[in-house]
Amino acid sequence: MLQSPTNDESRVRVPNTNKGQYSPNPNPKGDKKQNRVIRFLNSQKVAPYVFITPFIVSFLLLTLYPTIKAFTMSFQRVLPGQSHFIGWNNYERIFNPTFYKALQNTTIYVVLTVVILVVVPIVLSVILDSKLVKFKTLFRASLFIPSLTSVIVAGTIFRLIFGESDASAANQIIGIFGMEPIEWRYNSWSAMFLMVVLCCWRWMGVNMLYFLAGLQNIPKELYEAAEIDGANVFQKFYYVTLPFLKPITIFVITISIINGFRMFEESFVYWETSSPGNIGTTVVGYIYQQGIQQNDLGFGAAIGVVLMLIIFVISIIQLLLTGAFKRSDE
C-alpha cells in the first residue's frame, strides 16, 4: 500500500542469469529423489512461495477461516448443539437505536483520534528532530513508553484520575481554575473526551516514531535550497517536510481509522459493557455485549460483518482520495 516515490518496477526485477538451472547437482550419485525436492524448492518459481507459506497458512487458518465462519454464523442462531439458519433475521435486527448510537460514538471517536493522532505527532516529531531541542532521547522515550503499557492497566488509572468525586486528580486540577467538579463518566462529551485522551496518550509516541523515521528520508539539500530561496520555517515545513511525509501520513491515517473503528478497550475500562445512556458504547463493544455476554453469537457476527464492510468502504475511499492506487509512474 505504501509506495516509495522511486520506480520500484526496476528494483524488483532481479537479473536473470541462470533461469531454471539454479543449483547444479554437486553429487551426481546422491539420492535423486531428495535432489529433485531440493531443486524444486530452490527453483525461482517456487522459492518465493515457500518463504511466504508461514504467512499464508496463518492467514488461512487464523483469519480467513474465522472470517468465513463469521459470515455463516451471522445467518444463524448459535446455540450449543442446536445452531440453525434463520436467514436475514440477525441483519434485520442490527439497525436499532443502540447500534446507531454505537456507530455514532465510534465515528466521532475515529474523526477525533485521526485528526489528533496525525497533527500532533507531526508537530512533535519535527520539534524533536530539530537541532534546538535538548534531551531528545529522553523525550522520545517518554512519549513512546505509554504504548508499551496495557490499555486495561492504564485505563484503570485513568478511571481513578477522572473519578467524579471532588478529590479525584482531574477535578482537583480543574478546581484550581475555579471550575466545578465534573462527573466525567456520565456526560456524553466528557465520555468521548476520556476515550480520546486515553487513546491519544497511548498512541502518540508510536505515530511520532513513524514520522521521525519519515523525516530522516528528506534530503537536507532541499532545505538548503529552500533557505537560499528565502523560505521561512513555516514555508519550509509546508513545502518541503509535509509533501515528503505524505506516504507516512497515509499509512498512519489508514491505521488510525481501522484501529478507531475496532476500538473496544478504551470504552471497556471506563464502563465495562454498559455505559449510562450508551454514551461510551462502541460498535465492537456492542458486538462483545450482544455476542458474548448475552450469548447471541449469530447477532454479534452479523454486526461484525457490517463493521467490516464499513471499515472496508471507508479505507477504500480514503486510499482513492489520497491516491494510493495510482501508479507511481503515472
Binding site: M1, F59, L62, T63, L64, P66, T67, S150, V151, I152, I255, I258, N259, R262, F264, E265, V284, Y288, G304, L307, M308, I311, F312, S315, I316, L319
Partner: peptide
C-alpha cells in the same frame, strides 16, 4: 492487499481483546 489488510486488522482486534484482559 487492501482487502486482506483490513480483514487482518479487524481480526487482530479480537486477539488484542483477550490478551488485554
Amino acid at each position: 492487499l487492501a482487502v486482506a489488510f483490513s480483514i487482518l486488522l479487524t481480526a487482530c482486534g479480537g486477539n488484542n481483546k483477550s490478551s488485554g484482559g
